[in-house]
Amino acid sequence: MADCNVVVLISGSGSNLQALIDSTASGDNPAHIRAVISNRADAYGLQRAKAAGIDTRVLDHKQFDGREAFDAALVEAIDAFEPHLVVLAGFMRILTPGFVRHYAGRLLNIHPSLLPKYKGLHTHQRALEAGDSEHGCSVHFVTEELDGGPLAVQAPIPVQSDDTPETLAQRVHVQEHRIYPLAVRWFAEGRLRLGDNGAELDGQTLPPTGQQLRN
């Protein structure tokens, strides 16, 4: 099976990036991380990439005159690596419609909630305040709607009576590190794609919640 070139975008510590690096190190995974690009020079994820021998690039968004100019430069940097897939792993930038359209069907994101619940920030706090019995994380194709693209996979976990936003975040992170590498592998193997009616796995349109993976 041919390699699937992947470019990962980060802004921070890169724990999901590390899970992706670990999952592609086995040799039987067609996903191949060609580069890691960050909008912050101090992002620890860049050190993770360098330790794994992966090319890195930094594009400081503050050096550009507006989102469109930054995204245009970002597209140029990404496309130099000829990616089949672009993966957002804690990339804290709202992307322009032009950027999203350029990578339509080959742009994945992970979000720490059971979408469509709790788009945006502070998802763990919001789940607790709402008294939810379940929380979790979602991998989705990126569209122009923030945190609104078709869902590929979700990992629900029970909310415990003594949970805090911090304890809930820790348990959600464990699930993120499980389902993101899985979704990337599915894409690299040609099993996961964006179809006319949403995300498809093995030729079948997934339900609105995506593939549900429970422990």
Rank of each mutant, 00 (worst) to 15 (best):
S23Q: 10
S23I: 10
S23W: 15
A25I: 05
A25P: 02
D28Y: 14
P30M: 05
P30I: 12
A31L: 12
H32C: 12
H32G: 10
H32P: 04
R34L: 00
V36Y: 12
N39I: 13
N39Q: 09
A41L: 06
A41W: 13
D42E: 14
Y44S: 09
G45T: 05
G45L: 10
Q47W: 08
R48V: 07
A49I: 01
A49Y: 07
K50Q: 15
K50V: 15
A51I: 04
A52V: 10
A52K: 02
G53M: 03
I54F: 05
I54T: 06
I54H: 13
I54Y: 14
D55T: 13
T56L: 02
T56P: 00
R57L: 03
R57A: 12
V58T: 07
L59W: 14
L59R: 09
D60K: 14
D60E: 08
D60G: 13
D60I: 05
H61N: 11
K62N: 04
K62I: 00
Q63S: 14
Q63E: 11
Q63W: 08
Q63F: 06
F64R: 05
F64C: 07
G66F: 12
R67L: 05
R67H: 07
E68I: 10
A69S: 11
A69R: 12
A69K: 04
D71A: 09
D71P: 07
A72I: 13
L74E: 07
L74R: 01
V75S: 14
E76W: 04
A77I: 05
A77E: 14
I78R: 15
A80G: 11
A80K: 08
A80S: 03
F81P: 02
F81R: 04
E82H: 10
H84M: 07
H84P: 02
H84N: 11
L85T: 01
L85R: 06
L85K: 06
L85H: 09
V87S: 11
L88H: 05
L88Q: 11
L88N: 05
A89K: 12
A89S: 11
A89M: 08
F91P: 07
M92A: 04
M92S: 06
M92K: 07
R93S: 03
I94Q: 05
I94K: 00
I94H: 01
L95R: 00
L95N: 03
P97T: 09
P97E: 14
G98E: 12
G98R: 08
F99I: 03
F99V: 02
F99N: 09
R101S: 08
A104T: 07
A104K: 06
G105L: 15
R106Q: 08
R106K: 15
R106A: 01
R106S: 03
L107T: 02
L108F: 09
L108M: 15
N109L: 08
N109G: 03
I110P: 00
I110T: 01
H111Q: 15
H111Y: 14
P112A: 12
S113D: 04
L114C: 02
L115M: 04
L115R: 07
L115N: 07
P116A: 01
K117L: 08
Y118K: 06
Y118N: 01
K119D: 02
K119T: 01
H122L: 04
T123I: 03
H124V: 00
Q125H: 05
Q125N: 09
Q125K: 14
R126H: 13
A127D: 12
G131R: 13
G131L: 02
G131I: 12
G131E: 10
D132Y: 01
